[in-house]
Amino acid sequence: MVGLYPKYLEEAVEMKYAHKEAKLYAGGTDWMVRHAECNQLLFLNQIQELKVINEDTDNIYIGSGCTYFELLNNDLVPEILKEAIRGIAAPAIKNIGTIGGNICNASPAGDTLPILYALGAKVEVISVDKNKIFPIEDFILGVRKLLLNDTEILKRIIIQKHEFSNTYYQKVGARKSQALSKASFVGLANIQEGKLVDLRIAFGSVASTIIRVKQIEEKYIDINIKELPSHIGEIKADYDSYIIPIDDQRSTASYRKAVCMNLLEDFLRKLK
């Protein structure tokens, strides 16, 4: 096994271009457990550019190499994302696991993903000759499947600045620490003059990728908040065909689905 140790992002993309088969190593918390077959490891953890969190007027930019610990200690990171990060694993993992790793593992149980989907996050991918920006839902194709070719590196996550008057997040795990999610739910909304003007809902661990259905969200925009309770049954029915969890060693399909529907209803009832 050969190690590649770039110090700068530019160097990293050159190395990746030259060593297309090299696997990317960020925090290592997942790679070290799975030990995917490879002959070259490209270590990203010395690259300071991947650890930058900054902003401009419209957006927050989060370097893919930021650890959970670093995100929790940065004022620019949206509180709802921090809430999800607090529920990840335990300190020893938070200290090395990275947001880029969480995204690139592309697990439907990835704890930051429902939040990033709901926030409409974009990812910026870099290679020797170009930068590309995609919405996160276009970047993640399925379980451990990404729209990332063998010359590219995930550089940063771009989150549009946006205030929500209603935020709701719940992870359901088997215990209060060191738990992989059985299901997770995030709901974000804005209400103006009694009307729902922005609604974002995402579910984790209930399908092969995070579920966010913009058509359903749009359907209820402009609805009077007082009328919302009468639509709850309809909204749940709208989501029914998208929430298709499985039975596995951690939970059951029926539990996951029931809990998601309960959380959805609870979120909707609490909107104000």
């Binding site: 290592g28 070290m32 270590f43 993992i93």
Partner: peptide
Amino acid sequence: INSCLVAMGS
């Protein structure tokens, strides 16, 4: 940090 999750190269 859990030392079982740390590759020497990091």
